[in-house]
Amino acid sequence: MKAQGSVFRFGDNIDTDVIIPARYLNSSDPAELAQHCMEDIDTEFVKKVKQGDMIVADKNFGCGSSREHAPIAIKAAGVSCVIAKTFARIFYRNAINIGLPIMECPEAADAISAGDTVTVDFDSGIITDETTGQSFKGQPFPPFMQELIAAGGLVNYINKK
């Protein structure tokens, strides 16, 4: 499985309150949440993001609350992959559970710029910046999580057991 898209670039400690502000948590509809994705840090994000685009961020992406609405909003906004130096642990778990592809790769996060076109090969963990021609090896998921993702998230995984 591969994903390709144009990059939106963010910094350290992007918290779930800026990913989806609590004032919109009276809804749990993915399409509605997507309309406010990243609103408090980049009001242009929702206007510009296209299906398949990617987010590249620095350390501790998704810190703060446990709201699953955060990865849901990102996924529903069309984002095909989030690459970061590190992820906050609840966000990491939630992203896997709802099937939003994420990749930890500090080298890629350092080198990739906003607007670059990036390809991610999930099977090999290779991240390629098509704009600069650079390639990086992302951290692949442990086998247990690959099973979870292959099953299509936690709900299907449990149904299959």
Binding site: S66, R67, E68, P71, I90, R93, N94, N97, I98, G153, L154, V155, I158
Partner: peptide, 14 residues
């Protein structure tokens, strides 16, 4: 520890 809603769902079920 804190988790998301899907983990909560799986926890309630299993």
């Amino acid at each position: 520890t804190g988790v998301g809603s899907t983990d909560m769902a799986a926890g309630m079920a299993t």
